[in-house]
């Protein structure tokens, strides 16, 4: 077998002349092209993940939900403000962590270290996303609790006119809708994220495991 691989080696060395030849200009044109590496994509997606939760405030329905009048009427405003402070604090922590990890990635490292660092960066983003998903659920839960303890739901929600149904039934209906919305929203957000990353780093993860298995 060794003979065969050495046979291949001899042939391999001779193959230089068969390789394509690119001109100076062709190579020169390439150096300013945009990279499409995994690391760059992780970076783009992370930026989107940091921004998207804030873009939600641009949606009228979401803004109304977070409306201070409504949350004030439900008596949950101080809790929401407190949670927002925590959320921003943690987000800043993650942005700093992510930036540090991202900067550590160097193509000059050996393959094992390079993969380690990419996986660590990816993990930082993963933790941030899990935190965000958790926060979304908590926000919804507080809102639902606020609804549950509200004495006059119609007034709190500023609906204007009374619905044609029993107030208790109406309350449970609103709570039910909110609960379903909370779960659907969280699952969809989480699903999109894990699908994106799963597809993006599938090959990397495979090679990472292959290389680590070697060391194990």
């Amino acid at each position: 077998m060794i003979d065969e691989l050495d046979l291949l080696k001899k042939d391999w060395q001779k193959r230089d002349s068969e390789m394509p030849k690119l001109s100076y200009d062709q190579i020169h044109r390439m150096i300013w092209k945009k990279s499409s590496s995994v690391v760059r994509w992780i970076f783009y997606i992370s930026i989107i993940e940091f921004i998207v939760p804030h873009l939600l405030y641009l949606l009228p329905s979401f803004r109304d939900g977070m409306n201070t009048d409504i949350s004030g009427a439900l008596g949950i405003q101080p809790i929401l403000i407190g949670l927002s402070v925590i959320q921003y604090g943690v987000a800043i922590y993650f942005i700093v962590q992510f930036y540090r990890r991202y900067k550590e990635i160097s193509v000059l490292d050996n393959a094992s270290n390079l993969m380690d660092k990419i996986m660590r960066t990816r993990k930082t983003v993963k933790h941030y996303v899990l935190f965000c998903l958790g926060m979304i659920l908590i926000f919804f839960m507080i809102f639902i609790l606020g609804l549950y303890f509200s004495d006059n739901l119609v007034e709190s929600l500023q609906l204007g006119k009374e619905p044609d149904m029993d107030p208790a039934r109406f309350k449970w209906m609103v709570i039910g809708i909110m609960s379903v919305a909370a779960i659907v929203f969280t699952v969809v957000m989480g699903g999109i994220y894990f699908l994106l990353y799963g597809l993006l780093t599938r090959r990397l993860l495979f090679n990472y495991k292959d290389l680590k298995r070697m060391e194990g």
Binding site: S36, S37, V38, V39, W41, V107, L108, D109, N110, A111, L114, M115, I118, L200, R203, L204, N207
Partner: peptide, 12 residues
């Protein structure tokens, strides 16, 4: 090093 790192790690 750079070429192999790109091929096995960075390249999609």
């Amino acid at each position: 090093r750079v070429a192999l790192n790109t091929a096995i790690t960075l390249y999609r």
